[in-house]
Nucleic acid binder design. Sequence first.
DNA 1: AAGCCAATCAACCGCCGTGAG
DNA 2: ACTCACGGCGGTTGATTGGCT
Length: 248
Amino acid sequence: MGRQPCCEKVGLKKGPWTAEEDKKLVNFILTNGQCCWRAVPKLAGLLRCGKSCRLRWTNYLRPDLKRGLLSKEEEKMVIDLHSQLGNRWSKIASHLPGRTDNEIKNYWNTHIKKKLRKMGIDPMTHKPLPSVPPDEPPQQAADAIDRGDSQKLDDEIETTTSQESLMRDMESLLETASATSPVHFCTDEVPLLQPHEFAAPSSEFQTPCTEWQESAYLCGNDLDFIYDEWESQRSVLEDHESWKFELF
DNA sequence: AAGCCAATCAACCGCCGTGAG
DNA sequence: ACTCACGGCGGTTGATTGGCT
């Protein structure tokens, strides 16, 4: 006997969210806060699975989300945390305010993984990849020799040399990150947020709102209404304990 | 201009841990 | 102790976009 589906799938909409659906979801959550996700679509008038609503909110509509590529510092932190935690994206994301696990996972798979490999570092173990012995040129360089392609050969040598120096850079970078990171824990011991860490003073509470317009712009949808809603209902939110918990 | 391919990222799927009954 | 529903997580998929030929 299999598990019951999380919701009735018949007649539910799938695929990309429309601006109209976003509007409904945001309006509902701003008015009611986050309650039982299973009930959200019904109450908000959405033909979506509760899970889908939660995902849309946490990964895209939440007003405290940052947008755009990760900064150098964030990237360093992700690499460092990944070396300690592995693919525990939500744990990694919890150390990067405004970033979601999905975003970090995607960024890792599309950018960092590639970058580390290029530098001769195994992205899973964070150790040097099994390399070709120094006296044996890499295959591409060997091919260049075979073809007598001196320019290509120069390029390969240049690449190999810069890979070595990049790898040294990365090693020292990781050491620095480990030494300076405020995060100190072993693999199975992830610190929980203390109450003072998420109960933000009211001045900080406004920070997400200042970024909201830009987020709306960057995500391409017409989300000005969300910003307006957010502003107009902020006083309500400030009294809402669950919101404080979720946002900070 | 058109077709192809790779990169990107939002969204989905299915499993797992947890807590209530 | 057990079952079940729920939220959360990580892996994967697929639509879209941009670059190249």
